[in-house]
Design a protein around this nucleic acid. Structure first.
Lengths: 153, 153
DNA sequence: CTTAAATCCGACTATAATTATCGTTTATTA
DNA sequence: TAATAAACGATAATTATAGTCGGATTTAAG
């Protein structure tokens, strides 16, 4: 049910680049330091982001990375999907990674997962980097306080 | 972002048992056949369900498994959480599996994951086996048709 | 033109999780 | 006592995760 570290790290780096959109390139060393990501690992991730056209790089001594597109043109959903494959909790309710399941004609819990998928896909695909960069950080204790009726999540 | 096969298989078996709640025990062989699950694998899963008090077993020639509790007293959330640990997309927004992250004071995308968590936890923890067993299967093509604005999920 | 600082590239490793399978023992009942 | 179940513990195969490493190439400054 979780997103990978790669996705997490990619988003961290991307939002740093969003903050400096239009400015000078930021080297991996700096992106890694600021976001608490292993530098050699981030290297890999940045290459992936580049191959998707989300960032551009400049080599050499004053080089580094910049955001290649307007932050309104990149969504959380695209990023998560690129690194983790699908957003859906189960393949049989995924559109991009749909796999048929023999139980579909009789399965009842599939509806619940479909609802989860629809909500998650909705917010992820509507959330552009520009939108999200304007959000203020979640306040302390807000997480542990928001129970939902069960034991939390 | 996905639920494991174990969770999937556990739910399949559980709903079969819900359908026969109050009736005679159903052997693993039958649960496996009906739900298209490898028998030896399901064996493991049933033991886990038993250890949670969700099912009871009877050995011997007329033996098998029955649901041990009223299906209104077991939720999807409990089952998913038991096999997959957490429902949250990232540890820093999980209640049961919370882990601190160094970026919390400055992280902005955390809010998006928190929203996802809250919704998913909400439906999972509100959905009892009794509720879900009354749902009719998702109709054909309903999945691929429900786009959300992006590329789907 | 040399050097320092970057990205780029491919391979590699280590660990953990996932998805099972297998052999044997114990219990039940017809 | 034979047939049919669950129970138990070990093991195995595959895949995913989370990195690490060495070296090649590019660039700008001195």
């Amino acid at each position: 049910m979780r997103v990978s570290k790669k996705t997490d790290y990619a988003l961290r780096a991307l939002f740093t680049l969003v903050d400096h959109f239009g400015g000078a390139p930021i080297p991996i060393r700096e992106l890694a330091r600021r976001n608490d990501v292993p530098k050699r690992f981030l290297e890999q991730i940045m290459l992936a982001l580049k191959s998707q056209g989300w960032v551009r790089s400049e080599a050499g001594i004053r080089g580094g990375y910049v955001l290649a597109k307007n932050p309104e043109k990149i969504t959380m959903g695209e990023v998560v999907r690129h690194f983790d494959g699908i957003l859906a909790p189960i393949d049989c309710v995924s559109v991009t990674g749909y796999k048929r399941c023999s139980q579909e004609p009789v399965c009842r819990f599939r509806r619940v997962f479909l609802d989860a998928r629809n909500y998650v896909a909705g917010i992820m695909d509507r959330s552009t980097l520009a939108d999200v960069s304007k959000i203020s950080p979640v306040s302390k204790h807000e997480v542990s306080g928001s129970f939902t009726g069960g034991e939390g999540i």
